[in-house]
């Protein structure tokens, strides 16, 4: 995939770490909500076209999906999505609200419960990241949307300029429940550029001068391994 905006390995590490922090918080919130172990994968970060992003999801989930979406604006802007296969969304709801409810009640509560769960997770994730980057974000109210991969990624991202998005996804699964999902973050190029600058600042803060000497020394090999 051709990338206009290239993240150095360190920037990628930093971004991964930022997401990791956010998602850890979110997972811990989720864990508290459902009382089961939540397994997270290491976040994967790709910069690709919405089409490729939807294919990425599609090849994992062929069926209908449910997504909780939140838009965020501020130093950088984009959308965050919490995506579940549609058939597990009720399980998630049941996990959150408890088993004592009847199926009808669960179905009734689904939309609301999903939105709230999504809000806890996404908000936690985004807020943590913003906090780490020492910026604030305005996060919209969550909305629940349904559709397949293309719908979620292409139609919902008509605004994407340059046709590229940051696709950041994390698999999570919940022990003893057939619940799994992805967190995706979609950003357009201007936002990406802004985010990259924030990440650079973050690195500067954390690593300090050490980076200068090291990154200048390690750039070549890092870039090489990047492209590999």
């Amino acid at each position: 995939m051709s990338v206009d905006i290239a993240l150095s390995e360190l920037e990628r590490d930093a971004l991964t770490e930022l997401v990791n922090i956010g998602v850890s918080r979110a997972a811990s919130s989720l864990r508290k909500m459902i009382g089961e172990e939540v397994i997270l994968s290491v976040p994967a970060i790709e910069i690709l076209s919405p089409k490729d992003a939807s294919r990425l999801i599609e090849e994992r989930e062929a069926g209908q999906l449910v997504a909780v979406r939140q838009q965020f604006e501020g130093a950088f802007a984009g959308r965050a999505l919490l995506i579940f296969p549609e058939e597990t969304s009720l399980d998630l709801v049941r996990a959150v609200v408890g088993n004592q409810l009847s199926p009808d009640e669960v179905a009734e509560m689904e939309q609301e419960a999903l939105a709230e769960t999504g809000n806890v997770i996404l908000n936690g994730c985004l807020a943590t990241m913003a906090n780490m980057l020492k910026r604030s974000l305005d996060i919209s109210l969550p909305e629940v949307i349904r559709g397949d991969g293309p719908l979620l990624f292409e139609l919902l991202h008509q605004r994407a300029e340059g046709g590229l998005v940051l696709f950041l996804y994390i698999n999570f699964s919940v022990r003893n429940r057939d619940i799994r999902g992805y967190i995706a973050m979609l950003m357009d190029l201007p936002s990406l550029a802004a985010l990259q600058q924030l990440i650079a600042d973050f690195i500067e803060r954390v690593v300090g001068k050490e980076v200068e000497s090291v990154s200048s020394k390690g750039t070549d090999s890092q870039n090489a391994s990047w492209q590999a």
Binding site: E9, D13, E17, N20, I21, S28, N131, M132, I203, V206
Partner: peptide, 21 residues
């Protein structure tokens, strides 16, 4: 190792910033 140090610093920063694992 100097080449690994920034990476680890970032990761530790993540932990200190609230990452779990």
């Amino acid at each position: 190792h100097p080449e690994d140090r920034p990476r680890i610093r970032i990761a530790v920063a993540g932990i200190l910033g609230g990452a779990e694992i």
